[in-house]
Design a protein around this nucleic acid. Sequence first.
DNA 1: ACTGATCCTTGATTCAGATCAAAATGAAAA
DNA 2: TTTTCATTTTGATCTGAATCAAGGATCAGT
Lengths: 248, 248
Amino acid sequence: MLNDEASVIPKDCGQCPIRHRAVCARCEVDELERLDQIKYYRSFQAGQTVIWAGDRMDFVGSVVTGIATLTQTMEDGRTQMVGLLLPSDFVGRPGRATAAYNVVATSDVMMCCFRKKPFEDMMAATPHIAQRLLEMTLDELDAAREWMLVLGRKTAREKIASLLAIIGRRNATLSMQGQTGTMVFDLPLTREAMADYLGLTLETVSRQISALKRDGIIVLEGKRHVTVPDFDRLMEEAGDDSDGGLLT
Amino acid sequence: MLNDEASVIPKDCGQCPIRHRAVCARCEVDELERLDQIKYYRSFQAGQTVIWAGDRMDFVGSVVTGIATLTQTMEDGRTQMVGLLLPSDFVGRPGRATAAYNVVATSDVMMCCFRKKPFEDMMAATPHIAQRLLEMTLDELDAAREWMLVLGRKTAREKIASLLAIIGRRNATLSMQGQTGTMVFDLPLTREAMADYLGLTLETVSRQISALKRDGIIVLEGKRHVTVPDFDRLMEEAGDDSDGGLLT
DNA sequence: ACTGATCCTTGATTCAGATCAAAATGAAAA
DNA sequence: TTTTCATTTTGATCTGAATCAAGGATCAGT
């Protein structure tokens, strides 16, 4: 996958693609300048581990480009994804010394990082940052709770439909498309990663995707490129009210 | 259940049982006085609904005594608990007009409430409140992610053991007991509520509790009073590392 | 003590998804 | 092109938890 966007470093925060969605979204120009001075970029190749659960973590940061996952693992190897990190999402927790989860780059990833201590100082001095972080954390909590319903109560088919709906909806939001009618996007996850997200096995994921294809809910070109002819139909399959309930 | 604590109203914030854990925990005396002026108490009987998902919500607040649940429901009635609200936990979200989840009092509950607008104003003027709310929200997010592993990857027996461990651990924290050896507590939830928490049916919950009893992992007196002779043993059944990983 | 209501337990059977197994696809390397 | 390797699909079988069904325990009200 030829992807050189991960190697392009924004000239300054004003040019940054996540300027208006990340933890810095509410910052004024002068605040941004101060952040600018303490930030640094790190990039990770697809498949690379950003940090292991339990390891000392002396930075926090935002995903600028690419996709990463947060996962939890049991001793016997069972793993559950607990977060999907997209551009603008925040990694790490101010006031905590070690990583709570494994963070793995799913595609090539570039992150905008801050050493923890300077960031914490900056946060104390800059209410705009703390405000935005609170807002983002509350959104993540809502997403996690939505996901608890999916994990606890939905069938395999509904789980797959829910995941497709979430990916599709996010894609539509980013590219300013409507959320009805036809929708086209690429799956950013392998079948195994989808299984880890949904609490299923990869075989079940594959079978349910095939079933949705057979039933005309989705059209597949290759293994990753998805067309949803009728988004409302997909939502029904996901078991959600047509009204949605999620934020856009 | 004779429980008149729910009817006892603290004289002032200084006497409040959740003074040092709630959203007001970091407030100085003068900040507390201002909160004191805009707060009011509401009590709810066991079983009563505090608010329905989707309803207009013009207050936020803290649970002072008792236990409440946050639940999500699908049209066909499947329900998933997404939060267990204990004393000091915060209800509602600043900057949101409607409730995202059903909130139901599981026992008699007393809440310390604030009308949303004055609270938001106070938050903007009082960093200590926003700071504490961020910290509490991050903790809740961690708890939600822990729960995603339980829902997605654990067996029915492990789920029950995990829930017992969480309730037991919290109890030990509140009453300053150790987290090893024998532990005694009451289940604050019906079998059905446990099932909704764990993504199981109430029959499976009942069977697994019976199995843990049969195997000597727990001792039951009546249906709600639990003795855990060996907490480490329970943790093993929960499939968790002995080191725990959760915050105390 | 009886009635009703709620909550809980246990048994029999079914079924959705896991597990075990093999083959197909497709991209990268040689 | 052929080989390799990761990824995905599909089939056969098994199993853990759901579902269906029946009673038991506990408590409040009469």
